[in-house]
Design a protein around this nucleic acid. Structure first.
Lengths: 217, 217
DNA sequence: GCGAACAGAATTGTCAACGATTCTGTTTTC
DNA sequence: GAAAACAGAATCGTTGACAATTCTGTTCGC
């Protein structure tokens, strides 16, 4: 039986490298536009270059990494205009998910939503933007999950991955959590009322305010 | 200078194999769920197995091919439910594009739209569903183009690729082109009137009728 | 006869070395 | 002194062979 901690090669190695690098990029450990050299990364993660290469190709098709022929890979930088465009797509797709969620949710799921709402209110009251940001993410994920829209969920996950840097900056802006909170509570209420139209409107209103905030950079 | 006809290997070879295989799948030359053996394909396209393999990986991330570890690749079959889900996503994203197109279009582009509308009317009057289907595709592409929404366009192209088989079946259904035509003309008029709200509504109405048709399989 | 174990074939997955391309700093030429 | 030419280094791209896995048809035990 192979040691399972960190397989030096093979499919598992690729997955391992993929997830570690993705996490590193998402958590901002890699400077924007930083060069990603296959050999260095492979060595530092303890995998072969082939595995690392495959991981980089995957991240490229996820839109997190940019690669130029014979010049290597770099972490992709998302401009503000791109972030706005991406958020507009989220508006459309999350609107769809929210509307579906409003008609499809079970009672247990509605309770879960209410719980998240309370937790978010508390985080804002406590002045804890980091926790709030995490709960925010959880809420959107839960709604996507309830909607049961596999295709939309897949697209949204790709889109969200590209926004982490901007999202992070946004959450720390003073006053932002308060506005965001009230929009989210409205969304939760709309779904709990099983009103798809209102849910979609609430999502769009929320993301519209996100776009305004993005543009105010 | 390398001969440009059909390089046996390298990046160009991958692109060549990629496009030929994609075309073959989209045109239905590959039976649904047909096995795609790397060696066979590589030989028949005159490229190395490595290039073929890379092409298959690309198609996998486009959602056209399914691959199972150590078992090979097969053309992915899209069930009716999936087709519905995908069309719901298109509804959201094309709605966004249509609304943007209504506000962003230049006069020249509006004329182009009108021209396409006339051509589509003619194709229906002539009872030519194949031409109509192509014009249909052109219309959606033009609207996406006008919208200038890079991100949404990218997502939509991926989604559309997965639907070709269903789309094809749909176009040949008696009576379908007539209904489709009137919906498209309404959409064109809404954009020409520079009315984003009406344009989005028209797109949604159209795709909603596509969903009904899909479900009536 | 029927299911389990087993060898052989087919297919994909992985690797390490080699080849090609691009960048960088230096030299040469005008 | 500036632009062009060039060599050297760094890095990615490709190849062909080998290893690992899965499938298939056959045999064996009951």
């Amino acid at each position: 039986m192979p040691k399972e901690a960190r397989p030096g090669s093979g499919e598992q190695a690729k997955q391992y490298a993929l997830e570690r690098l993705r996490k590193a990029i998402l958590q901002g450990e890699m400077a924007p536009a930083q060069r990603l050299v296959e050999n260095e990364l492979a060595e530092s993660y303890g995998v072969t270059r082939a595995s690392m290469r495959a991981a980089l190709l995957d991240l490229t098709s996820e839109g997190l990494v940019e690669r130029i022929r014979n010049r290597g890979s770099r972490v992709r930088v998302v401009t503000v205009e791109e972030a706005v465009e991406i958020t507009e797509c989220r508006m459309a797709l999350e609107g769809l998910c929210a509307a579906k969620a409003a008609t499809e949710a079970t009672d247990a799921q509605l309770d879960e939503l209410a719980g998240l709402g309370k937790a978010m209110s508390k985080a804002v009251a406590d002045g804890d933007p980091v926790t709030y940001s995490e709960l925010n993410h959880d809420l959107h994920a839960l709604i996507r999950d309830i909607s049961g829209q596999h295709t939309a969920v897949g697209l949204l996950e790709r889109l969200n991955a590209q926004l982490v840097r901007h999202r992070f900056q946004l959450a720390l802006r003073p006053g932002r959590p308060q506005q965001s909170l009230s929009e989210h509570l409205a969304l939760i209420e709309a779904i709990r009322a099983r009103d798809p139209q209102a849910a979609e409107t609430a999502v769009r209103a929320h993301l519209s305010s996100v776009i305004d905030a993005l543009r105010a950079d």
